[in-house]
């Protein structure tokens, strides 16, 4: 199953940088060496089992934009699963950016009515911390207004912190057909392990695919263990960021990261392969449970999750 993802936005807004960080494991420091993207760069990323992301990184210079909207129109905007539109938070040409954005929305409504639209207010690290919230709020308002009837989700991002992982995990989640089903089984697994939380990551990107927690645990499910422990709300994206950074450190030694177990003062956890394409993090707060027991449980759950992944992807075809 292929899903087409359009990456759009003005030249220099940061599209190629984020793509190379998420999918090619490049460090942020190397992004300054990237040249402008010429026309469209297509990439196929095998994401989960049969799910293949077909990324279209669309160079943002005016000449290219004009051609996407005219001669290439049907090629660009057909069969789109998701469009991600990137806005540089410091853009000096917001009027023009918005005009192109509205034109792209129109193209989508013509050829891919059901596409999801994500807007990224990018490079927020450039805004002073004290002003960041107000600046982002104002942008969000502006972008929602420009989107008219089209439902959009807006995230503020920077390649220098975990916000990038939060946005992309959300984006990718809309593309995984069996995400809900996976969550249900993760919940069962968490109970079996007596775990506070179980998190499933995609193997190469370390984006979060599913968690054992209920989406809004605090209200609807007061007995949810995560709600009871009141864990850090940024833990998912921070974990992605931390593991990705450590994977980079390992590769500098020509080693590959395999697994991690921790018995820290605060919690016990194991991060290990779950299936061919996924890693699982099991977090336990019960001090009696040891990492060996968690490992054993992961071992026994592997087959089930392999099946689950295979099954539902095939059936959705």
């Amino acid at each position: 199953m292929k899903k087409k993802v359009l990456l759009m936005g003005a030249s220099g807004s940061g599209k190629t940088s984020m793509r190379s960080m998420i999918f090619s494991n490049n460090p942020a420091s190397l992004t300054s060496r990237l040249g402008a993207t010429i026309d469209v760069e297509q990439n196929h990323v095998r994401f989960l089992g049969d799910l293949i992301l077909n990324l279209w990184d669309c160079g943002g210079q005016d000449a290219f934009m004009d051609s996407y909207l005219s001669t290439q129109r049907s090629v660009i905007f057909s069969h789109v699963g998701v469009m991600i539109y990137v806005f540089d938070v410091e853009s000096r040409e917001m009027e023009k950016d918005l005009e192109y954005y509205r034109d792209c929305l129109e193209g989508l409504s013509q050829f891919s009515k059901n596409a999801n639209v994500f807007l990224l207010v990018h490079k927020v690290d450039l805004v002073r911390e004290a002003e960041r919230n107000t600046v982002v709020e104002r942008k969000v308002e502006e972008l929602e207004k420009a989107s008219g009837e089209t439902p959009v989700k807006v995230f503020s991002t920077s390649i220098y912190d975990e916000s990038l992982y939060k946005a992309w995990s959300n984006i990718v989640n809309t593309l995984i057909p069996n995400a809900r089903n996976l969550s249900k089984h993760l919940r069962i697994f968490a109970e079996a392990c007596n775990a506070t939380e179980v998190i499933l990551f995609e193997r190469t990107t370390f984006l979060v695919i599913a968690t054992s927690s209920h989406a809004d645990s605090s209200d609807a499910f007061p007995s949810d263990p995560v709600a009871l422990h009141a864990l850090d709300p940024k833990r998912y994206e921070r974990t992605s960021e931390l593991i990705k950074a450590f994977k980079q450190s390992c590769s500098r030694l020509r080693e590959e990261f395999r697994s991690l177990e921790m018995e820290l003062a605060e919690f016990t956890a194991v991060l290990d392969e779950m299936t061919k394409n996924t890693y699982v993090l099991v977090v336990v707060h019960d001090p009696v449970i040891e990492t060996a027991a968690i490992r054993m449980n992961i071992c026994m759950a592997r087959k089930k999750f392999e099946e689950l992944q295979g099954d539902s992807l095939v059936s959705e075809k």
């Binding site: 864990l231 833990r235 974990t239 931390l242 080693e255 820290l264 003062a265 605060e266």
Partner: peptide
């Protein structure tokens, strides 16, 4: 360097999953 990075990661993990209960 790898050892330093490993320590950084472990230092960051602690507070991330610390229970506030």
């Amino acid at each position: 360097n790898l050892c330093c990075d490993y320590l950084s990661m472990l230092n960051s993990f602690g507070p991330l999953y610390r229970s506030n209960a």
